[in-house]
């Protein structure tokens, strides 16, 4: 654990340095012009930070959803929070309120969360399977609504499509700070429940009789996960697969306790996302960009294919 932790921290530092140095414009660190210094400080650094934080937020939210749903394939997609946040963002685009996108995304995400929560709780108890189904329904419904809004507005289509694929062009120090606070607070809250989260992997009776307040813990984890997702979508659009892949890889490395999974996922998510964003802004020439969601989803898709073919056992271990 310690070793993995330190190597991930080292990797993260390396990735931040690499991603800050590389970009559409090449910068010589030791002979910087004023413009280059400005680019480094106001464009690139906030972007690297934001992508890292969004990666952490998504990985942590995916992990929390997996605990709440008791399903290793749960993430912000399957729970519908991602799609409902995106729906909020698209409404903002359609209304021409671009600067309010994060707020709308948050509102959409929280609405989605409340709906899924209400549907899936029976007499105050959350049913993981119902929650998964409710999430899929919400996801489908939100996607349909987004398609409808796309249809209504041909001119804003490319703006909407971009939102559905994500990107970090719009990074700013303010966003970085806001997300930093959200991620840190979530981490501190989650940290208080490491042992409880582990015990959630038992059946409910065992967990309850161990002294874990199962419903309260699920509620709290679900809310935090949804909050993290909504912030990520609000700042960077929908970016798929991160919440699924990162915790999965870490579990495959035999880290299965929450006290290991949570910090390693946060670090791993940051490394993964910074790397993806670096690709998105350097793969094409002349400063052209690719939406980062395309890259994460293709890397994620290939990785899952590999898991399905080579490591079925690990994938299905969770009965």
């Amino acid at each position: 654990m310690k070793k993995a932790m330190y190597s991930l921290i080292l990797l993260l530092i390396l990735m931040v340095v690499l991603a800050t140095l590389k970009g559409a414009v090449s910068i010589d660190l030791f002979h910087m012009s004023n413009t280059e210094r400005d680019i480094l400080l106001f464009v690139r650094l906030p972007r690297v930070m934001l992508s890292g934080l969004v990666g952490s937020a998504l990985a942590l939210s995916g992990l929390l959803f997996q605990y709440v749903m008791k399903n290793p394939l749960a993430d912000s997609f399957t729970t519908g929070v991602s799609a409902s946040s995106a729906m909020g963002a698209v409404v903002a685009i359609l209304l021409g309120l671009g600067f309010l996108i994060p707020l709308f995304a948050l509102a959409g995400g929280i609405t989605g969360l409340v709906i899924v929560y209400k549907i899936s709780s029976v007499r105050g108890r959350v049913q993981p399977i119902t929650m998964l189904l409710a999430g899929i329904v919400l996801s489908t419904f939100s996607s349909a609504t987004i398609s409808f809004m796309k249809f209504l507005s041909d001119d804003a289509v490319s703006s909407i499509i971009f939102w559905l694929m994500g990107g970090f062009q719009d990074a700013s120090v303010k966003k970085v700070l806001a997300l930093l606070v959200v991620v840190m607070l979530s981490f501190l809250l989650v940290r208080r429940h490491y042992l409880g989260l582990d015990i959630l992997s038992f059946d409910d009776t065992t967990a309850l009789s161990s002294g874990v307040e199962v419903d309260r813990l699920r509620k709290e984890a679900f809310f935090l996960a949804a909050l993290l997702t909504a912030f990520s979508v609000g700042y960077a659009g929908i970016i798929g697969f991160v919440g699924l892949i990162v915790p999965h890889v870490i579990r495959l490395m035999r880290f299965v306790k929450a006290s290991e999974l949570v910090p390693l996922s946060i670090l791993g998510g940051a490394v993964f996302m910074i790397f993806n964003d670096l690709l998105s802004r350097t793969l094409l020439s002349e400063g052209q960009e690719l939406p980062v969601g395309i890259i994460t989803s293709s890397i994620g898709g290939l990785f899952f294919l590999y898991l399905l073919i080579k490591r079925k056992r690990e994938l299905y271990y969770f009965d």
Partner: peptide, 16 residues
């Protein structure tokens, strides 16, 4: 702390 219970059936879905 006063009472512990062994349920009739248990399951675990993490490789602990």
């Amino acid at each position: 702390r006063l009472i512990s219970l062994l349920p009739q059936q248990s399951s675990l879905n993490m490789p602990f």
